[in-house]
Design a binder for these strands. Structure first.
Lengths: 200, 200
DNA sequence: GTCTATACTGAGATAGAC
DNA sequence: GTCTATCTCAGTATAGAC
C-alpha cells in the first residue's frame, strides 16, 4: 500500500518525475543555473538516480525520440504508392504530428526552453539529424535512390522544424496547417521567379 | 631577445598552436580521452590559457566559422541578378569552396574527427544551423521571400554538407564537382518519378 | 551508493610588449 | 608607467568508475 508522500519506486514513474522537474527548473532558472542535484531533489530522488535514468543533463528532455522515430519510419513504410519522396515524407509527418499536437502542455515549454538554450539546441539538432537519417533509410527501403534519400530526408526535416517553430511562435493555426504550408513553400523553391528585381 | 624554447606571447600564435595540438590529440586518442591539460601541454601553454582562447573543448576546432560566414554572406550579396534562391546559394558555395579545398591538410582530418565524435558532430550541426540562418538573412536582403529564405538556406546547407562528406569519403573528384552534383540532386527531388514500383 | 577524474570558472599574480 | 597574455590557485558540477 502506498503511503502518502512516499516516492513511488516504479522506474517509469521516476523518469516522468525527473523529466517534469527538469523542464520546470530549466524554465525557472535556465539550464545552466540548474544542477542535477536540484532536479533530483524536486523529483524526490537521489542525484545518482538521475544519471541512472538519463546519461546526461540534456538527454532528460529528449526521451520520446525513439517512439517518434518508430512512428515515422513506420508511416513512411506504410504510405500509399505513387508518391514523390517529399510527398512521402509529408505523409509521414502528418501521420505522426498528433503526437506533438496531443501533448502540447509538455511539448510547448519544451520547445521553448530548447530554442533559448544553446546546449539544448545542439542536442536537438543532433537528434533531428539522426532522425532524418532514419527517415532516409526508410525512404531507401521504399525504392528512393540512395543519394536522393538523404537529401530528401534532411530537406523534409527542415520544413518540419520550420512548421513546428511557427506552431509554437504564432500558434494561430494547427500544426498540420503549418506543415502543409512549409511543404508548399519547399516545392515553390524550385519554381520561384528570379530574385533579381526585388533586390533593388 | 627571444630565448630558445620560450613561448611567444602573441595571442594569434598561441591560438594556432592550441588548435593544431587539439586536432592531433583528438585524432591520436580520440576526443573523449584527450584532456584540456594535455592539449595545453603539447602547445607549450597552461591549461587555463586554453580556456582564455576557447570557451570549451569543442570550440577549438570551430574557429574559421566567422570567416566562412562573412565570405558566404558577401558572396550571396554579390551574386548576379536573376538567380533562383537555390542557385543563389549554389553560387555562394562555389565562390567560397576554395577556402576548404585550399586548406585540405587541416580540413580533412578535422572533418574526419568531427564525423566520428558525437560531441563534435553536435557542435558542427549547431554551427551549420547558425550559418544557414546567416545565409537566410542574406537571401532576404536580396529580396527572397521571408519564409522561403530560411527553408532555402537550410536545404542548401544539407546539400553542401552532403557534398563535403562525399569529398572526404570518396575523394575522387573536386569539392566543386560534388557540390554541383548535390544541387542537381536537390532539383531532381521535386521532379522525381513516383517511388511506387521500385518498392516491390 | 561512494569515490574520483576532469571540464570549466573566478580572482589575483606575473611577465613581456609598448 | 599601461596593457594584455599568461599563469597560479582554489574551487564547483558533471559524469563515469567502482
Amino acid at each position: 500500500m502506498r503511503i502518502l508522500g512516499s516516492v513511488p519506486r516504479s522506474g517509469a514513474e521516476a523518469r516522468r518525475r525527473l523529466q517534469q522537474a527538469a523542464l520546470e527548473l530549466y524554465r525557472e532558472r535556465g539550464f545552466d543555473r540548474t544542477t542535477t542535484a536540484e532536479i533530483a531533489a524536486r523529483a524526490g530522488l537521489n542525484e545518482r538516480t538521475f544519471f541512472r535514468h538519463f546519461p546526461d543533463k540534456r538527454e532528460v528532455l529528449f526521451d520520446g525520440e525513439s517512439d517518434l522515430r518508430a512512428a515515422l519510419t513506420e508511416a513512411v513504410a506504410e504510405a500509399p504508392d505513387g508518391l514523390q519522396p517529399l510527398d512521402l515524407i509529408l505523409h509521414a509527418f502528418r501521420k505522426v504530428e498528433h503526437i506533438l499536437e496531443g501533448n502540447r502542455p509538455f511539448a510547448e515549454p519544451r520547445l521553448r526552453v530548447i530554442a533559448e538554450t544553446p546546449a539544448l539546441r545542439e542536442r536537438d539538432l543532433a537528434k533531428a539529424a539522426s532522425m532524418a537519417e532514419a527517415v532516409a533509410e526508410a525512404l531507401r527501403r521504399r525504392g528512393v535512390a540512395d543519394r536522393l534519400a538523404g537529401l530528401a530526408a534532411h530537406t523534409g526535416w527542415a520544413a518540419f522544424h520550420h512548421a513546428a517553430q511557427a506552431w509554437i511562435d504564432d500558434s494561430t493555426q494547427s500544426l498540420d496547417a503549418y506543415l502543409l504550408q512549409a511543404f508548399d513553400d519547399l516545392r515553390a523553391l524550385s519554381l520561384t521567379t528570379p530574385a533579381a528585381d526585388a533586390a533593388r
